[in-house]
Design a protein around this nucleic acid. Structure first.
Length: 755
DNA sequence: ATGATAGGGCTCGATA
DNA sequence: TATCGAGCCCTAT
C-alpha cells in the first residue's frame, strides 16, 4: 500500500501518520520487558509502550484505508475478507476466475496442495531450479527501446497506452478458452506461440471479466464526477474504483505466476509479445511522421518535439494519438505529459521537469526522477541530496559556464561539510533489506548489511530476519580492511567513541559515482573534474568508461566482414538473391536491399514483397543454423598449407595449447571455423538487416530516397525490425554457446596436465 | 510461502 | 591486471 525505506513501526508512524519522533523512539525489546518487572513504574512504562504500538498500528491501518479497500476487493473477486488480507494477489484472481468459469459450466483445474514438485511432463516447463538463486525469467517480457541519451532542453512529449496488458487481453481476445493450449518449442528450445483466435471467435472468459472490471470502474468514476455527494460516499467510491483497477491490472501477472491455479505461460507470453509488437509499431508510426522517438518502455514512448510551445506540443500529441489509435479497436494511446527538460541517462534511468497547466492556467513545474541512484534506498541520503542538487542545477536554461561553476561550488561545499563532520550520521546511512535470514547467505562476508545484521543478532537484543532492513554506515575502524568489512549500524556508531565515518569512502564511493553518472552528458564535467572538486585524485578517473564510439565501430565494419559469407535468399518471384550489403543501388536508385529487385530487368517484385517476411525469416534462420552447425562440426585443419591434415578427432599430441597434426606430425592444427569467425558472421548478418543502423551512415539525399522506399513498401520497417530481432536473438544464443570454444577446451586440458 | 519481466550497478572470485 | 559471470538489491513498467 505504500513504499518506505524501512517498514519498522517507527518509520511507518513518521511516514503515514506524519508524527515525527525526533528519531529517539523508545523500543520495547524482549530484554526490556523482562527487566521492567523489577518495579511497577518500569512495568507501567512497558505497558504504555505496548499500548502505544497497538494504537499506532491501528491508526496506520485506518489512515491507509486498508480495510475498506480489502472489503471492496473481496466483493469484486468473491472471496472472504480474511483471505484478501492474508493471501496474495494470486489467490484473489484465482477466486475471480473460479466464479467466472463455474458460472459458465466449466470444470476448473484442481488445486495443487503442498510444495511437492508435480511432474511437468505435459507442461513443457524447464526444471524449476532448486538452488537458492533467483529464478530465471520463464518468458520474454516488455520491450525497452534504446534510449537516445543526453540532456534535452526542448519539450519532450510523453505518451503511453492506458493499461496496456488488460487492453491487449481484450483487444485480441486472449483466454484459456480461445487459445490453443498446446505450444511447442523450436529446435533451440524457444517458445513458439500458438495462433491468436479468429476475429469471429466469441469473447472468452478472461476478456469478458476484464471488460466487466473496466466498465464498472468507468461507471464509478462517472458517479464521482457528480457533485451531489458526501465526502464519505466520495471516498467510498474512490476506494472501489481503485480496487477495480488493482484487480484488472493484476490479472496478467497471475497468468505468468508458476504456482497459480490458472497458470498459463502461453497466454502471458502472448500478451507481452503483443505488447512488444505494439510498442515497435507505435514507434515506427511516429517515426514515419518524421518525429524523433528518443525512448520508450513497455507501453510508453517519448518524442522530442524540438519545440518550446506548450500548445503546439499538445496539438502534436493529439495528432500522434489519433494516428496510433486508428490502428486498434480498444487500445488507446494517451498524452501523459510534457517535459520541459529531460536528462536521459540509461534505460529506466532519467530525470525530467514536467510542465502542467492548473485550473487557472498557470504553468506548474515538477521534477520527476526515475530509477536514478537518488531514488534508491541503497544509496545514502547524503549522495541522494547531492544528486538532487546537481539535477536542479542542470535542469535550467543557465549558461554552460554558470552550470559548471555552480556544480563545482556545490561539490566543494559538500566536501568541506563532510570533512568537518557537519553531516548527520542519519544522512550517511545506507539502507538495504535482507531477502533471507542473515545466517542463510552463502557468502555473508562480502555483504555489509548481512554482517551488520549478524553482529546485531548475536550481541544486541535485536532479532533481524528476512525482510527486515538494515541501515549501516561505512566507518574507519582502524582495521584497514575493505570498505565492505567496515560497515556498522547507525546505533553502533553513535555509541562508539572509536568509530569514525570513513569520509574518503563517502567522497569516492558515494558522491563521485552518483554525481558523475548525472553529469555524463554534460560537456566539460567529466569524471576527473568531479573527482578534483571532491578532492580526489583526478588521474584515477581520467580514462572514462569505454564509450561506445559509434563512428569507430561503423568504420571497421567493412574490413571486418570481408571474410563473411553473404546470405542466399529468394525474391518474391522465386529468383535467387545474394544479400551482401544493407543497401542496393546508388544515387536515386538506392534502397534497402530487401526492397529492391536484384535483377537488371526488374521482375516487378522485391524480396520482402508479397508474403516475403515469413519466407525471408525462414531462410535467414536456416542459414544462421548452418553457420552454427559448421562451427559445432568442429573440424580441425593443419596449419601447414602443404599438408592435407583435416580431422574431427582430437589428436592426443599437443604442442602448448594446440594439437599436433597427425598427418604431418609437425605443424599444429586449428579450428577450421572458429568461434570468432562465427561471431563475425552473425554480426555481419545483423549488419545486413539492421536497417536503422545502416541508415545512420547515409548522406542526407540517400537517406531521403531510402526513407521513401521504406514508406512505399507496406510494413517494411516493421518487417526489418522483426528480422533484426530474429538475428539478435540467435546471436545472443550462439554467442553464449561459443563461449566454450574448442580452443579453450584444449587449453584447459593442457593446463590441467591431461595432455 | 506464493503477481510478471527488464535493467543498472556494486562486489567478489575465477580466469585469461 | 583486466574481464567476466554470479549473486545481491532495488527500481521501471
Amino acid at each position: 500500500m505504500i513504499r518506505c525505506k524501512s517498514y519498522e513501526l517507527g518509520a511507518l508512524v513518521e511516514k503515514v501518520l506524519r508524527e515525527g519522533e525526533e528519531d529517539t523512539r523508545q523500543m520495547l525489546t524482549p530484554d526490556a520487558i523482562r527487566k521492567s518487572y523489577a518495579s511497577s513504574a518500569s512495568l507501567k512504562q512497558s505497558i504504555m509502550l505496548c499500548m502505544r504500538d497497538a494504537d499506532q498500528t491501528m491508526r496506520i491501518v485506518l489512515e491507509l484505508n486498508a480495510l475498506p479497500l480489502a472489503l471492496q476487493i473481496s466483493q469484486i473477486v468473491g472471496t472472504v475478507m480474511s483471505r484478501t488480507l492474508r493471501g496474495g494477489r494470486a489467490e484473489r484472481i484465482e477466486y475471480l476466475l473460479l466464479h467466472a468459469f463455474t458460472n459458465q459450466g466449466y470444470v476448473v483445474p484442481d488445486k495443487q496442495y503442498g510444495k511437492k514438485k508435480i511432474d511437468h511432463s505435459e507442461d513443457q516447463d524447464d526444471d524449476q531450479q532448486v538452488s537458492s538463486k533467483r529464478k530465471k525469467a520463464a518468458y520474454a517480457g516488455g520491450l525497452v527501446l534504446d534510449p537516445k541519451k543526453g540532456f534535452y532542453d526542448t519539450f519532450i512529449l510523453l505518451l503511453d497506452f492506458n493499461s496496456l496488458y488488460p487492453s491487449i487481453i481484450q483487444e485480441y481476445n486472449i483466454c484459456f478458452t480461445t487459445v490453443n493450449r498446446k505450444f511447442k518449442k523450436d529446435g533451440e528450445g524457444d517458445l513458439i506461440l500458438p495462433d491468436l483466435p479468429e476475429s469471429t471467435t466469441l469473447p472468452g472468459i478472461l476478456p469478458t471479466q476484464i471488460k466487466k472490471l473496466v466498465d464498472s470502474r468507468r461507471s464509478v468514476k462517472d458517479l464521482l464526477k457528480k457533485d451531489s455527494m458526501s465526502e464519505a460516499q466520495r471516498q467510498q467510491l474512490n476506494i472501489r474504483q481503485l480496487a477495480l483497477k488493482l484487480t484488472a491490472n493484476s490479472m496478467y501477472g497471475c497468468l505468468g505466476f508458476s504456482f497459480s491455479r490458472f497458470y498459463a505461460k502461453h497466454l502471458a507470453a502472448m500478451v507481452t509479445s503483443k505488447g512488444r509488437e505494439i510498442l515497435l509499431q507505435t514507434r515506427d508510426l511516429i517515426q514515419k511522421m518524421n518525429l524523433d522517438v528518443i525512448y520508450g518502455d513497455t507501453d510508453s514512448v517519448m518524442v522530442n518535439t524540438n519545440s518550446h510551445d506548450f500548445e503546439e506540443v499538445y496539438r502534436l500529441g493529439r495528432e500522434i494519438k489519433q494516428t496510433v489509435n486508428k490502428m486498434y479497436k480498444l487500445l488507446e494511446l494517451d498524452i501523459d505529459g510534457v517535459f520541459r527538460y529531460m536528462l536521459l541517462l540509461k534505460k529506466k534511468k532519467y530525470a525530467a521537469v514536467t510542465l502542467e497547466k492548473d485550473k487557472e492556467g498557470n504553468m506548474i513545474q515538477k521534477t520527476e526522477l526515475k530509477g536514478l541512484d537518488i531514488v534508491r534506498r541503497d544509496w545514502s541520503n547524503f549522495s541522494a541530496d547531492a544528486g538532487k542538487a546537481i539535477i536542479d542545477i542542470i535542469m535550467t536554461d543557465k549558461s554552460e559556464d554558470l552550470r559548471l561553476s555552480q556544480i563545482q561550488e556545490h561539490l566543494e561545499g559538500l566536501r568541506v561539510a563532510l570533512l568537518d563532520g557537519k553531516i548527520a550520521l542519519k544522512e550517511l546511512a545506507i539502507t538495504k533489506s535482507l531477502t533471507k535470514d542473515p545466517s542463510d547467505y552463502p557468502d555473508k562476508k562480502a555483504l555489509p548489511h548481512v554482517q551488520v545484521a549478524l553482529r546485531l543478532n548475536s550481541s544486541g537484543g535485536k532479532k533481524i530476519k528476512a525482510g527486515d532492513t538494515v541501515a549501516y554506515v561505512i566507518c574507519d575502524d582502524g582495521s584497514g580492511l575493505a570498505p565492505t568489512q567496515r560497515a556498522y549500524h547507525v546505533d553502533e556508531v553513535k555509541e562508539s567513541s572509536t568509530l569514525k565515518v570513513d569520509t574518503q569512502y563517502y567522497l569516492a564511493q558515494q558522491l563521485h559515482p552518483v554525481v558523475s553518472r548525472l553529469c555524463d552528458p554534460i560537456d566539460g564535467m567529466d569524471s576527473a573534474r568531479i573527482a578534483a572538486c571532491l578532492g580526489l585524485d583526478p588521474s584515477q578517473y581520467k580514462s572514462r568508461a569505454p564509450v561506445e564510439d559509434q563512428g569507430d565501430a561503423e568504420a571497421r565494419d567493412e574490413d571486418r566482414f570481408l571474410a563473411c559469407s553473404p546470405l542466399n535468399l529468394q525474391c518474391s518471384c522465386g529468383d535467387p538473391v545474394v544479400l551482401d550489403s544493407a543497401f542496393k543501388g546508388s544515387g536515386k536508385e538506392i534502397g534497402p536491399a530487401l526492397l529492391v529487385c536484384p535483377r537488371p530487368k526488374s521482375c516487378g517484385g522485391y524480396p520482402l514483397g508479397g508474403n516475403g517476411k515469413g519466407r525471408i525469416m525462414n531462410q535467414i534462420t536456416k542459414q544462421l543454423r548452418e553457420f552454427i552447425k559448421k562451427y559445432y562440426a568442429g573440424w580441425l585443419v593443419c596449419e601447414d598449407p602443404g599438408c592435407t591434415g583435416r580431422t574431427r578427432q582430437l589428436p592426443l599430441q599437443f604442442q602448448r595449447a594446440f594439437p599436433v597434426c597427425p598427418t604431418c606430425k609437425k605443424a599444429i592444427m586449428y579450428s577450421e571455423y572458429s568461434d570468432s569467425q562465427l561471431y563475425t558472421q552473425i554480426q555481419f548478418v545483423l549488419h545486413l538487416v539492421d536497417i536503422r543502423k545502416a541508415q545512420m551512415k547515409l548522406g542526407q539525399d540517400e537517406l531521403t530516397y531510402v526513407r521513401n522506399k521504406m514508406s512505399a513498401c507496406h510494413n517494411s520497417s516493421t518487417a526489418y525490425d522483426e528480422l533484426k530481432e530474429l538475428v539478435e536473438h540467435r546471436f545472443s544464443r550462439s554467442n553464449g554457446y561459443a563461449t566454450v570454444s574448442l580452443d579453450r577446451i584444449f587449453q584447459g586440458l593442457y593446463s590441467a596436465g591431461a595432455l
